[in-house]
Design a protein around this nucleic acid. Structure first.
Lengths: 355, 355
DNA sequence: ACTATTTCCCGAAACGTTTTGGCTCGAGTT
DNA sequence: AACTCGAGCCAAAACGTTTCGGGAAATAGT
């Protein structure tokens, strides 16, 4: 009775809103709610006659299950979240797309967060995702956010790291990226082979293992070549264009100008390119530039950028896979999963002028 | 009793998972569930003593409300969705960020969809968002998706269109963008003022009002200048680099080569630039290029691209505002909201060679 | 002609919140 | 002294699902 009353009230007051529920489908199909549910989750034991009645009702009423109720009851949402530091960086777009494509194939849905490399923002996203009860999250942590801080706001949600990863072993399910040291080594070897002896490097924030691995690969290769790394040639940026620009300026106008600059991510390479253009140097004639991460318009630049390519899309896919396998209690690929990089030689590096 | 049993079972079986609920907070704070709820939604009528007990419990238990349950009960989620055609297009990133920033300030959360300009994909996103019971969605519809098809899968969720908009007046709350005809006019006038008389144009898919408005602005300006638009100079692309490249090639290698090319979005401008470089033409000496939408690396290109700038971020903000105002039953800004564009003159346009 | 099994369906409980209405207690008001 | 009133708290219902246990009818096994 009270139920009837409220129903009547609602149908009068807010006729316009109101989503159709499984109950109405049941009524229309002359079935019980549980039977409709069974039919929709195509269990056995529902007659073909009943099933078609239900299908009809669903169609004509335009019924869409309420995922809130579903998730509440099921205690899982079949969705994961991915939060990346910068959506305007094509590398992360590809990564996100990879994660999304894999997840879709596994029947998971993906929520995207764009932290702009700020822990504040990332925390907000993680919190919001947690409250939404996603089943797990793949993180590319913001600068300075790689530590254990996230754990406390994520409860015991499974996390996999992609690209960047924390130095302190926070409890995570897995991580995927590339062998950063090796990638940096191959890049450095290439510059050495061109004859460069004074190589500037602009590396990322050292709170991420990714950055330290790359720097380590760089210095290691120098040492192997019996070249003493010059500390004044090693600059630490923030993975964005601005700091790439700033540190390239420092390098280019410093006491001893390097003959080549190696940037450990694409944004900083762009910043460095801007600085080079600004100063009026010719690249690669006056200075070689080598970047990390490829992007679709790298060939539109003059010079076309030589880069170490990371398989962004694959990283995203493997990350999602690792996470979802874990969620479903399946064994997965070994972690850390390290994918192959590739040195893509284009026009921005050449032998140094006087060598 | 049965309740006690299941609780015991769960605590044994899956100790590891299990999110802490308001009920446990209540127990820890020696309060009732309803009081905890009241305290959390800071109603009055809860004593300071009680409130502090609850706060303590929340903190030590690390309680995070379950937004599924909350949304189910409240019948609204305080979240909106935004779906755009291409996240690797910086214009849409900025638009999304604008929407996100405004929403955050209004205490709404944003779900992001990236349809890759495919109606299939967009439909999936819209469906998923609908099942999640977002309170509304801002759409930049995929090509060929501007019609009424979305309505049937969105139920009566409020929709606002950003940038693109449907030609058939589908029932929506509002739309926001720029005055596309005027923007195209100013671009065209600029090219005319440089002396161009043979202007090629690569426009977007005519299923969106945006594209037709831009084209119309173009031809209108030509006519005012007593120039008869040449149909062979008008090409219809798909707003992506590939089709920009293709149609630029057509134009450049056609019977009569234009002295300038106007692209009605940034991706097609990039494709056109690639084509120009490929053919070995000098820009702007041999051919001028004018694009739509600005992006942060437009100045890194050689030549630096001259473009019509749209206030992407603002478009996103206004779209979110329109939507949220509607959701909350407030009057809002007038719709369509048309924001100002700006012609940003850089290096990619110059007077034609022989003029 | 019984019993056992399978098929098809249903009612009710549970998931974690918020809200409504009601209860108690003490402080003012008459 | 009786009363009103507000502050402070709580129990229960409701939101829309899925699942569990079970009932009825049909079918199969002896």
């Amino acid at each position: 009775m009270s139920k009837a009353r409220t129903a009547r009230l609602r149908s009068k007051a807010k006729r316009v809103k109101h989503h159709v529920t499984i109950r109405e489908v049941a009524k229309a199909a002359r079935a019980s709610v549980s039977t409709v549910s069974a039919a929709l989750n195509n269990s056995d034991y529902v007659s073909t006659d009943m099933r078609s009645r239900i299908d009809d009702a669903v169609k004509t009423l335009r019924y869409r299950p309420n995922d809130l109720a579903r998730g509440l009851r099921l205690q899982r949402t079949h969705s994961i979240a991915i939060v990346v530091p910068d959506l305007s960086n094509n590398f992360y777009i590809e990564l996100v797309r990879g994660a999304k494509d894999y997840s879709a194939s596994a029947n998971y849905t993906v929520l995207i967060g764009d932290s702009r490399d700020s822990w504040e923002e990332e925390r907000n996203y993680l919190d919001s995702f947690h409250r939404r009860r996603v089943d797990g999250v793949v993180r590319v942590p913001a600068i300075n956010a790689a530590g254990g801080k996230a754990r406390s706001i994520l409860g015991n949600l499974p996390v996999v790291y992609a690209d960047r990863y924390p130095l302190v072993r926070d409890s995570y399910v897995g991580r995927v990226g590339v062998d950063n040291a090796r990638a940096a080594e191959s890049a450095t070897r290439y510059l050495l082979s061109l004859g460069h002896r004074h190589i500037g490097v602009i590396t990322g924030d050292p709170s991420s293992g990714t950055s330290v691995d790359r720097l380590q690969g760089f210095t290691h290769t120098l040492r192997i070549a019996k070249i003493r790394p010059d500390r004044s040639m090693i600059h630490t940026g923030h993975n964005d264009m601005e700091s790439g620009h700033f540190h390239a300026m420092q390098l280019l106008t410093g006491a001893q100008r390097p003959t080549a600059i190696f940037c450990t991510n694409n944004m900083m390479a762009l910043g460095a390119l801007a600085a080079i253009q600004e100063i009026g140097l010719a690249c690669p004639e006056d200075i070689s530039l080598l970047g990390f991460d490829d992007f679709y318009w790298a060939t539109l630049l003059r010079p076309r950028l030589t880069v170490v390519r990371q398989p962004a899309r694959e990283i995203g896919m493997v990350a999602a896979r690792l996470l979802i396998d874990h969620i479903e209690g399946r064994p997965s690929v070994p972690s850390p999963a390290l994918l192959e990089t590739q040195l893509i030689v284009r026009d921005s590096c050449s032998p140094p002028k006087k060598a």
